[in-house]
Each structure stands twice: as C-alpha cells, then as structure tokens.
C-alpha cells in the first residue's frame, strides 16, 4: 500500500530527470539539430570536443573556478564563523546580514555589480577615476573576465557558508572549548586544534558540494559575460547551452553535458558516502 505514496514523486522525477538524462547519453552519439532526424555518428561529438580549443578553455575555467571556491570562501567563512563564536553581541544580526546575498536572485546581484561597481560610467570604478585610481571593468578583459564573475559569485556565496559553519561550530562541545581556553590557547590555536577538527565532517561535505557546484556554475557567467569576451570566461555549462540553443548542435551539447556529469558523478559518489556515514542510508 505504501508503495503508492511514492508514485507522484517517482513519476515526476523519472519523466523530468531520468528519462531525459538517458536520452542525453544517447544523443551524445548522434548529430542532431533539435528538429530533423538524428544521425548516429559514434564518438564524433567527443572527438570534436577534444579538438575544440573552447572546450579546453571551458574545462580549465571550471577547474580554476573549483580551486577558487575550495579555498577563498571556505577559508573566509571559517574565519568569520569562528569569530561569531567569540562574540556575544550582534550574532543574530550579523548572521542575517551574511545570509542576505544568497537569497537575492543571481540576475539582480549580477546587474547590481555590473552597473554599480564595475561600470566605468555609473559604478564605483568610474567614481574612483576622479581620485586618479584607474580600474578597468574586469568583465571586458579576456585576462580578468572569469575572475570578475567569480568575485560576484564569491560575494553571493561566502556568507551562506559562514552561517553553515557557525551552526556546526555551535555543536562543538563547550567543555572542549573551555578546556582549550583554560590552557591559554590563542584564537588560532583554538581554531587549529579544537574548532576545525570539531566540524571536519561539515567542512568535508561543503567541499564536496563546492566541487559539484563548481562544475555546474552557469547563472553568473551567462548573465554577465555569456562566456566572453572571446570565450575567456566560458565554462562547460554555458558552452553546452550555447551549443544546444544557439548553434543547434544538440549532440555536441549532450557530449559536453556528459563531461560535466562525469565530474559531478565522482563528487556525488563521495557525497552519498558522506551522507551514508551519518546513518542516513
């Protein structure tokens, strides 16, 4: 009887996710423009990807993105979270403030940064010009476009991590912290020997999620640069999107999607294992 309870969830999930996912795997071996009859081409799409400079650029950018997001926001969030633990006043207010960016839609955040910060006419960058401080809009230069987009995503992301780490830190037994304090531990010793080991599993989980999300990153790149200029900020997901909907090369887009999924799959394996360890599975 209880099997029936699963029908709505599974029917929706299988038809929206699983079936199209299987079709994507199949499409990766076909040439298809989305309209006419698909033609089987074997590994041609993958060979085309291997010979495509944009693909390697995008893959490299995803790896750079992963490296950035595994270090800067996690480090900063850990610092801020443990500092929240030190103070007694203003914790709730600060948490609410740090959480704000994650609830603001990516399009809004992107436009505010483009117009009010990076823009050489209407933004802070233009305003600084009066004082002889010359900053170019990072989104318009091939050398900096990816980092410009990453800066905005960092702003959007780190506070969420800080709140998660703070919630985890609060579960570190008070006696351990008290003992370290009595032994005269400094703030960084406390962090190194008590706080960080105490929330190791949360940090690990967030690092796994970071790897997964870094290979999925789409919104900020698509909205702010569309992968440009000259593909300098292209990532795999924007490349796949462009291939499917602008170039109407759905087969090659599907092949790109499989590459994205491959990285996700490895990380997902660790994710499920981490969840299972806690008795969820």
């Amino acid at each position: 009887m209880h099997r029936l309870y699963l029908i709505p969830t599974l029917a929706i999930n299988l038809s929206i996710i699983l079936l199209p996912a299987i079709l994507t795997i199949a499409l990766a071996f076909f040439r298809w423009d989305g309209i006419s009859q698909p033609v089987f081409v074997g590994f041609d799409n993958f060979q085309a990807l291997a010979g495509d400079r944009v693909f390697w650029r995008a893959l490299t950018n995803n790896i750079i993105w992963t490296a950035i997001f595994l270090t800067i926001p996690i480090g900063f969030a850990l610092l801020v979270a443990s500092m929240l633990l030190l103070i007694s006043r203003g914790r709730i207010l600060l948490q609410v403030i740090f959480f704000l960016p994650i609830i603001i839609a990516t399009v809004i955040t992107a436009r505010v940064w483009q117009g009010m910060i990076f823009n050489p006419v209407s933004g802070i960058f233009g305003w600084l010009e009066q004082f002889g401080i010359h900053l170019t809009n990072p989104l318009t230069k091939t050398a900096t476009s990816l980092y410009g987009v990453a800066a905005v995503d960092l702003w959007h992301w780190w506070g969420f991590l800080a709140v998660i780490f703070f919630a985890a830190l609060r579960q570190v037994p008070a006696e351990q912290i008290e003992a370290a304090r009595l032994e005269g531990a400094t703030f960084f010793q406390m962090l190194r020997y008590v706080l960080l080991p105490g929330i190791k599993s949360t940090i690990m989980l967030m690092m796994i999620m970071t790897v997964i999300w870094s290979f999925l990153v789409f919104d900020f790149v698509f909205i702010m640069t569309r992968g440009g200029p000259a593909y300098s900020s292209e990532v795999l997901s924007t490349m796949a999107y462009r291939l499917a909907f602008y170039d109407l090369n759905v087969g090659k887009a599907a092949a790109t999607a499989l590459v994205i999924s491959l990285f996700g799959l490895v990380a997902t394996f660790f994710y499920i294992r981490a969840q299972a360890k806690d008795g969820d599975l």
Binding site: A21, I212, F215, F218, S237, A253, A257, L258, G264, T268
Partner: peptide, 28 residues
C-alpha cells in the same frame, strides 16, 4: 515502509546533485 527504501533514497540523493544540463536538452 517499503523494502526498496534504500534504493529510492540513494537514487534521490544522486538526483539532488544531478546537473541540469544532463537532462535539459532532451527535456526542452
């Protein structure tokens, strides 16, 4: 409540992290 709860849970955990691109194009 069902024997295959482990399988279903595992499957759902896996789809939590499924990239949208993996199913977007055929779906569209």
């Amino acid at each position: 409540k069902i024997k295959s709860w482990r399988l279903v849970t595992g499957y759902l955990l896996a789809t939590t992290t499924a990239p949208i691109q993996l199913f977007l194009f055929p779906l569209y």
